[in-house]
Write a protein that binds this DNA or RNA. Structure first.
Length: 109
DNA sequence: CGGGTGACTCAAA
DNA sequence: TTTTGAGCCACCC
Protein backbone atom coordinates (compact mmCIF):
# COMPACT_ATOMS: atom_id res chain seq x y z
CA UNK A 1 0.00 0.00 0.00
CA UNK A 2 1.21 3.52 0.62
CA UNK A 3 0.86 4.39 -3.02
CA UNK A 4 -0.09 8.00 -2.55
CA UNK A 5 -1.14 8.41 -6.11
CA UNK A 6 -3.41 5.48 -5.64
CA UNK A 7 -5.03 6.77 -2.50
CA UNK A 8 -5.16 10.35 -3.64
CA UNK A 9 -7.05 9.45 -6.76
CA UNK A 10 -9.62 7.59 -4.72
CA UNK A 11 -9.93 10.46 -2.33
CA UNK A 12 -10.22 13.08 -5.01
CA UNK A 13 -12.80 11.23 -7.04
CA UNK A 14 -14.95 11.07 -3.96
CA UNK A 15 -14.87 14.85 -3.84
CA UNK A 16 -16.33 15.34 -7.28
CA UNK A 17 -19.54 17.27 -6.69
CA UNK A 18 -22.93 16.08 -7.86
CA UNK A 19 -23.74 16.95 -11.41
CA UNK A 20 -20.12 17.64 -12.28
CA UNK A 21 -17.49 15.73 -14.21
CA UNK A 22 -13.73 15.82 -14.37
CA UNK A 23 -10.99 14.25 -16.42
CA UNK A 24 -8.23 11.78 -15.79
CA UNK A 25 -5.73 14.42 -16.73
CA UNK A 26 -7.13 16.96 -14.29
CA UNK A 27 -6.94 14.46 -11.48
CA UNK A 28 -3.44 13.41 -12.42
CA UNK A 29 -2.35 17.00 -12.65
CA UNK A 30 -3.80 17.83 -9.29
CA UNK A 31 -1.73 15.02 -7.85
CA UNK A 32 1.34 16.41 -9.53
CA UNK A 33 1.62 13.83 -12.29
CA UNK A 34 -0.14 15.35 -15.25
CA UNK A 35 1.11 12.59 -17.48
CA UNK A 36 0.03 9.64 -15.45
CA UNK A 37 -3.61 9.95 -16.40
CA UNK A 38 -3.56 6.29 -17.35
CA UNK A 39 -2.86 5.35 -13.79
CA UNK A 40 -5.93 7.31 -12.78
CA UNK A 41 -8.02 5.14 -15.02
CA UNK A 42 -6.35 2.08 -13.63
CA UNK A 43 -7.21 3.18 -10.10
CA UNK A 44 -10.83 3.57 -10.99
CA UNK A 45 -11.09 0.18 -12.65
CA UNK A 46 -9.41 -1.33 -9.65
CA UNK A 47 -10.96 0.56 -6.77
CA UNK A 48 -14.15 2.21 -8.03
CA UNK A 49 -16.29 -0.66 -6.82
CA UNK A 50 -14.52 -1.21 -3.53
CA UNK A 51 -14.59 2.43 -2.58
CA UNK A 52 -17.88 3.03 -4.31
CA UNK A 53 -16.43 5.92 -6.23
CA UNK A 54 -18.50 8.09 -8.57
CA UNK A 55 -16.31 6.96 -11.41
CA UNK A 56 -19.07 7.82 -13.85
CA UNK A 57 -18.13 11.46 -13.26
CA UNK A 58 -14.69 10.87 -14.68
CA UNK A 59 -14.30 11.06 -18.44
CA UNK A 60 -11.45 11.70 -20.79
CA UNK A 61 -10.43 15.21 -21.76
CA UNK A 62 -12.90 15.32 -24.62
CA UNK A 63 -15.82 14.54 -22.36
CA UNK A 64 -16.15 11.08 -23.81
CA UNK A 65 -17.25 8.19 -21.66
CA UNK A 66 -14.18 6.23 -22.58
CA UNK A 67 -14.53 3.94 -19.59
CA UNK A 68 -18.19 3.05 -19.94
CA UNK A 69 -17.15 -0.43 -21.08
CA UNK A 70 -15.86 -1.11 -17.61
CA UNK A 71 -19.10 -0.51 -15.80
CA UNK A 72 -21.65 -3.18 -14.89
CA UNK A 73 -23.37 -2.45 -18.16
CA UNK A 74 -22.72 -0.12 -21.06
CA UNK A 75 -25.46 2.32 -20.13
CA UNK A 76 -24.70 2.59 -16.44
CA UNK A 77 -22.30 5.49 -16.82
CA UNK A 78 -24.52 7.44 -19.15
CA UNK A 79 -27.62 6.85 -17.07
CA UNK A 80 -25.88 7.99 -13.93
CA UNK A 81 -24.73 11.21 -15.56
CA UNK A 82 -28.11 11.93 -17.08
CA UNK A 83 -29.59 11.27 -13.69
CA UNK A 84 -27.44 14.08 -12.38
CA UNK A 85 -28.68 16.50 -14.99
CA UNK A 86 -26.06 15.96 -17.65
CA UNK A 87 -26.84 15.16 -21.24
CA UNK A 88 -24.95 12.44 -23.05
CA UNK A 89 -24.87 12.18 -26.82
CA UNK A 90 -22.79 9.66 -28.70
CA UNK A 91 -21.04 8.73 -25.46
CA UNK A 92 -19.99 12.32 -25.02
CA UNK A 93 -20.99 14.89 -22.42
CA UNK A 94 -22.95 17.79 -23.85
CA UNK A 95 -21.46 21.14 -22.81
CA UNK A 96 -18.74 19.20 -21.11
CA UNK A 97 -16.83 22.40 -20.45
CA UNK A 98 -19.70 23.78 -18.40
CA UNK A 99 -19.85 20.75 -16.16
CA UNK A 100 -16.14 20.24 -16.00
CA UNK A 101 -14.92 20.29 -12.43
CA UNK A 102 -11.25 21.09 -12.26
CA UNK A 103 -9.78 20.31 -8.83
CA UNK A 104 -6.89 22.60 -9.66
CA UNK A 105 -9.26 25.55 -9.93
CA UNK A 106 -12.42 24.79 -8.02
CA UNK A 107 -10.90 22.82 -5.23
CA UNK A 108 -8.92 25.84 -4.19
CA UNK A 109 -6.99 25.35 -1.05
C1' DC B 1 14.25 -8.37 -13.22
C1' DG B 2 12.03 -7.55 -17.61
C1' DG B 3 8.14 -6.86 -20.50
C1' DG B 4 3.31 -5.96 -21.39
C1' DT B 5 -1.04 -3.50 -20.42
C1' DG B 6 -4.36 0.19 -19.36
C1' DA B 7 -11.02 3.98 -18.12
C1' DC B 8 -5.06 9.05 -20.94
C1' DT B 9 -2.63 13.04 -23.00
C1' DC B 10 0.48 15.75 -25.55
C1' DA B 11 3.74 16.62 -29.26
C1' DA B 12 5.64 15.70 -33.54
C1' DA B 13 5.45 14.10 -38.43
C1' DT C 1 -5.90 17.59 -40.61
C1' DT C 2 -5.09 12.87 -39.24
C1' DT C 3 -2.04 9.45 -37.63
C1' DT C 4 1.98 7.87 -34.68
C1' DG C 5 5.04 7.66 -30.96
C1' DA C 6 6.38 8.37 -26.46
C1' DG C 7 5.68 9.43 -21.47
C1' DC C 8 4.10 8.25 -16.97
C1' DC C 9 2.60 5.18 -12.81
C1' DA C 10 1.23 0.91 -10.88
C1' DC C 11 -0.04 -3.97 -11.46
C1' DC C 12 0.43 -8.75 -13.33
C1' DC C 13 2.96 -12.70 -15.38
Amino acid sequence: MKSNFFDDVVDLVKLIPYGRVTTYGAIAKYLGASKSSRTVGWVLSSQSIKHNLPAHRVVNRLGVLSGKNHFPNLLYMQQKLEEEGLIITEDKVLNFEKFFWDPNKELTL
